[in-house]
Design a protein around this nucleic acid. Structure first.
Lengths: 198, 198
DNA sequence: CCTACCGATCGGTAGG
DNA sequence: CCTACCGATCGGTAGG
């Protein structure tokens, strides 16, 4: 027996439409700066409508983090899966991340860099969701490095240590590019990463 | 002829007392989240009093950035000047930065990491003040590296490139330690920095 | 999904 | 430095 609930289908469509605005607003103004009123205005909707869709600001923030995860997965992780396991995939992940940041997939640069800086020292469910997303990403990167080590393409390497250094360089390039409005940090990061993966 | 303006002297004392609270609030809640009302409450003062001392929120933010610069200079830069020019000073700067972050000199970790992430994509005088502070710090680090190269203590090194990599590792350690509430990133950063400076 | 409304807080001003 | 106040906006509720 199929339930044909038109309201639920419309709700899902509305949610994803509003979500696009939410992710953009949060990437520039932060998850705390993402207000229900301004989001409603951006989505040409009433405040009550946004509240009806998401319930509370915290749930809106959690939905926004989840939506950003999907964008990140589609932009960085999925394309890298087209590459064979091992060093090629590690290189691909680094390059795709730099492109994702440089092309300003999110208006305010890497969504997770902004979110983790904003929530780094404030406990709560939203902090935990951001930390979990970062853990997933680090874990995926580290796993990819492990494959490269197993294949003998990287020798004398501690995967955890290399994962730390790669993410530091990727995030550093994102931050400095935003702060100084320059593309040079991306080239600096590439140079360092190529040396680490040589 | 000496001007003895008791009000001005009292104003300066009050300002620096309020400033200490402002820097702490901004390091956890961000420069935008630093509200005049909560700062007044933290300093046991009326809102009007805070406004009288600083004039506007933007001027309060600028004063807060300046105060954070002084703390950073006293905690990281000045002690490093005790070391002789060259590689010893570069090592000292890196170690002092990691200690400054790990000891939570600011409640929310490195003040400038938080501020630059928050204001990275929002133009204005406060953004410019933060960017200028970061530029000074990078310039000092790069200059210290140049001395080490000139002294023959670092060979085959591009100072600009090395400065980028060091700051990426230092900021990366700060961010990951805050996000995951762990001291491990500091050890990872030390390992990488020791290799770069070997 | 809407309108209408709630109490709280925002940055800032007036006047002393 | 204070009190008293301004209009705007905040997150959220009520009722439909």
């Amino acid at each position: 027996m199929t339930i044909t609930d038109g309201r639920r289908a419309r709700g899902a469509t509305s949610r994803s439409a509003v979500m696009r605005h939410a992710v953009d607003l949060a990437s520039t103004d932060g998850l705390e700066g993402l207000s229900i009123g301004r989001l409603a205005a951006a989505a040409s909707m009433s405040k009550g409508g946004v509240v009806a869709l998401f319930g509370s600001k915290e749930q809106l923030q959690l939905a926004t983090v989840a939506a950003a995860c999907e964008v990140f997965a589609a932009t960085v992780v999925s394309p890298a899966l087209q590459q064979p396991r091992g060093l090629a995939r590690v290189r691909s992940l680094a390059e795709l991340f730099l492109r994702y940041s440089e092309q300003r997939t999110f208006a305010g640069g890497c969504f997770f860099a902004a979110a983790s800086a904003e929530l780094g020292s404030r406990p709560g469910p939203v902090h935990d969701a951001v930390a979990a997303a970062m853990r997933d990403w680090h874990g995926f990167l580290r796993g990819s490095i492990v494959r490269a080590v197993e294949a003998g393409e990287l020798s004398g390497v501690d995967p955890e240590q290399l994962a730390f250094e790669l993410t530091a360089l990727l995030d550093g390039a994102n931050r400095m590019s935003l702060l100084f409005d320059s593309a040079e940090p991306y080239r600096r990061a590439s140079v360092a990463i190529n040396r680490l993966l040589a």
